[in-house]
Design a protein around this nucleic acid. Structure first.
Length: 742
DNA sequence: TCGCCAAGACTTTTT
DNA sequence: GTCTTGGCGA
């Protein structure tokens, strides 16, 4: 009998999907069908085990992942999914906090500050405390505060071991007060408050932990301490927790993520079931071999034996460009060539780099060509001034206490409110211990009868006008649709005439506002709060446009995707270019002195390599332009870990003979040292009968695929075979009577 | 109050 | 080399 839910799963996947209750740890290599397993598990619980959707919570890191899961679940399911909690950590926490706001010091209409707002607020705290901004950069202090929150330290509890800590702590305390006064939370607060809420309120914890009989988690290796605690609390009653992750793809250490949570999980739940997914459905053997060479140099990991049935595939193409401009040209020309000859479409390609700064040169090269491309990240859309302004208006309507937004839009468009007036408003607010927004609203209501009128001074009338506009909008908030409110704000402020000033840039800016308006359309029903929340929590990945369908129903040719290695996680492309394989860039110079960070750089490269399905390109440039002068670099050390036999070096483009010689040594005649090569070198070939990817049949277990074979010290050949029936078995070849199938 | 200009920073990755 | 920030003049 056929079963569409389970039939196409391999033995390991099946084991994971149909595992019983308890704690399940799935370690899933790249391309091993991680999302598929998670999705099927969810449907398995709902559809086969009859678990009500209401009893399940499933958490991901990006909205994109959550959306994909939801779409697939809906297609696979016959019943409904009402009541299911499915979303990102941050979104789930926001939901929890809005429901339980009264148990915290927040009102349910709190806003979520984005990173710019957070930094602005830190800056303000620093200034209030008369701390030297040059010595203690707001961005740096904010990063330290963020770390403290991820480690679950409340402001008062933050440990101090240095003078800098002391400064950070003082700022942290003030920053947190300011957030509360703004009725706002930052990204870390969402996790921090949620964890705190559950920890300190047994009855609330009980009710959620009782409700969520099943907890499912994606990208578990990227959880930080706060997230780990949260998961433990949510699953504290039923203890049915199913996590999927891969230590080798942990690349967010700097954000508090700790892949050792995988080890912690095994320690906290000694009875947990551990399942390895090792069959890769994405890449060619060549790509996997390169990836393995790179990652095998990291220690402290669960060894995995990734294998594929996709065959060897084409060699990795490497190219050393004389400079970064030529590096970019090579990428564009190569893509152009394949697109023109119809062997590939733009949507097949991705270009990946370590730092956002590298995207510029690449982008310029694409602009000179006719190839469509999309650049992911770096706040391309939401970071635009006109977009942020419109969002700030909406945020102010949602929450008049949001002073950051208030200050942002008070002079947009310019209406005669300057520093002096702003200071007066703030002073008036301080005097009455209310927010600046409330001062405005009072002025809007009572005009010159307001007690604040005299305090504001000359521009009181202008401020009162703005206050009454704000009051109108707030009144409209719950009566008209989101888009109507949006249009009304534009109309009342003359926003269009202000930004669309007749120049090309003006038209561009107006187009961005229209784009935001289109996004608002999707939230007509849900309203302003979910809209703003979704805007605050978009990740770069969420902005990726997949190749849309065109009118004919066939996939459009798509666009080349330009993105950082970080943003590439979880994605796949037929052809991948990784550029900037230079010492100092990948690995980044900031990681040079810390082995842990170096290991993370390596994982980052590993993530990049394993995005490729068919063809991988590795590029570097001998010199690149930074701040207006040339900087030279050596090839990345990570390249040494890739077996030269997997690589085809493309042309030579070196300018100076000396450099060319150095490069040739690395690429053409480089002979890796034995210690480095040990993991890649096949065992002595003499008696070895079986090789990776061979199909074999055993009397006991039927057909399978050889995933590894090596000679042990006794001269016995040890073969690991992935059997269709029972999964992976390690066998002694001479005893196992394996038949090789062609 | 606002726009212009010069000085300085900027480059790690982001929910 | 370019973008942001802060200071100054109109």
């Amino acid at each position: 009998m056929s079963d569409p839910l389970l039939d196409d799963l391999n033995p390991q996947q099946l084991k994971a999907v149909t595992a019983g209750d308890g704690q399940i740890l799935v370690l899933a290599g790249p391309g091993s069908g991680k999302t598929r397993v998670l999705t099927r598990r969810l449907v398995y619980l709902l559809d086969r085990k009859g678990v009500p959707a209401y009893d399940i919570i499933a958490v991901t890191f990006t909205n994109k992942a959550a959306r994909e899961m939801e779409e697939r679940v809906v297609t696979l399911m016959h019943g409904g999914t009402d009541g299911l909690w499915l979303g990102t950590f941050h979104a789930m926490c926001a939901r929890l906090l809005r429901r339980e706001a009264k148990a915290l010091n927040l009102s349910p209409n709190f806003v979520i500050f984005d990173s710019d707002d957070q930094e602005a607020l830190v800056k303000r705290a620093i200034r209030e405390l008369n701390i030297d901004e040059k010595m203690h950069r707001p961005a740096g202090v904010h990063a330290s505060i963020s770390n403290a929150k991820n480690e679950l330290y409340a402001p008062a509890d933050m440990p101090v071991t240095s003078y800098r800590d002391e400064v950070v702590k003082r700022v942290y305390i003030r920053y947190q007060e300011l957030l509360l006064a703004n009725n706002a939370v930052d990204f870390d607060d969402l996790l921090f408050y949620a964890t705190q809420l559950l920890r300190d309120n047994p009855s609330i914890r009980e009710s959620y932990a009782r409700r969520f009989r099943y907890v499912l988690v994606d990208e578990f290796q990227d959880t930080n301490l706060a997230q780990y605690e949260l998961l433990k609390q949510l699953s504290s009653v039923h203890k049915n927790i199913f996590v999927v992750g891969d230590e080798d793809q942990s690349i967010y250490r700097w954000r508090g993520a700790d892949y050792r949570n995988v080890l912690r999980f095994e320690k906290d739940f000694p009875d947990c079931q551990k399942i390895l997914l090792e069959q890769n459905y994405r890449s060619t053997q060549t790509v996997l071999d390169a990836a393995r060479g790179v990652i095998d140099e990291n220690r402290n990991r669960t060894p995995k034996h990734l294998f594929t049935t996709r065959g060897e595939g084409s060699k990795i193409i490497t190219y050393t460009a004389p400079d970064d401009i030529d590096e970019a040209d090579f990428v564009v020309k190569e893509i152009q060539k394949k697109v023109n000859s119809n062997t590939a479409a733009p949507g097949d390609f991705a270009v990946m780099y370590r730092t956002n700064a590298q995207s510029r040169v690449i982008e310029e090269a694409f602009m000179r060509s006719a190839i469509p491309y999309q650049l992911i990240g770096a706040q391309r859309f939401y970071g635009r001034r006109e977009v942020k302004d419109m969002i700030a208006f909406l945020r102010l309507v949602q929450n008049p206490d949001d002073e950051i937004s208030l200050l942002r839009v008070l002079g947009v468009p310019p209406r005669g409110i300057g520093d002096k007036t702003i200071a007066n408003i703030q002073a008036a607010a301080f005097k009455k211990d209310i927010s600046a927004g409330e001062v405005l609203l009072d002025l809007g209501q009572k005009s010159d009868a307001s007690p604040f009128w005299a305090l504001i001074g000359r521009s009181a009338a202008i401020v009162a006008d703005f206050g009454s506009l704000l009051e109108d909008w707030i009144a409209l908030r719950d009566q008209v649709s989101l888009v109507t409110l949006f249009d009304r704000i534009i109309q009342d402020t003359g926003f269009e005439a202000y930004i669309n000033d007749g120049t090309d840039e003006g038209a561009d800016r107006w187009e961005n506002v229209q784009e935001l308006r289109r996004l608002a359309f999707d939230y007509q029903e849900k309203g302003i709060t979910p809209f703003l929340e979704s805007l605050a929590l978009v990740s770069d990945q969420d902005t990726i446009r997949d190749a849309e369908l065109n009118g004919t129903g066939r996939p459009a040719r798509g666009t080349v995707t330009l993105l950082t290695l970080h943003a590439a996680k979880g994605l796949e492309f037929k052809q991948v270019f990784i550029i900037g394989l230079d010492e100092g860039l990948l690995p980044h110079s900031r990681s040079r002195d810390d082995p842990e960070e170096m290991a993370e750089e390596r994982r980052l490269f590993y993530v990049g390599i394993t995005r490729a399905k068919d063809q991988l390109y590795l590029l570097r440039a001998e010199r690149r332009n930074s701040f207006g002068n040339w900087e030279y670099s050596e090839p990345s050390r990570f390249l040494d870990a890739i077996d030269p036999a997997l690589v085809k070096h493309h042309g030579r483009a070196s300018r100076s003979p000396r450099e060319a010689q150095a490069r040739d040594m690395i690429w053409d005649s480089y002979n890796p040292s034995p210690s480095r090569r040990v993991t890649l070198e096949p065992a002595p070939a003499a008696e070895q009968k079986y090789k990776e990817t061979m199909r074999v049949r055993s009397e006991n277990w039927g057909e399978g695929i050889v995933i590894e074979s090596k000679m042990d010290t006794d001269g016995e050949e040890i073969v690991s075979v992935q059997f269709e029936s029972v999964g992976i078995k390690r066998l002694i070849a001479s005893l196992a009577k394996l038949e090789i199938l062609k």
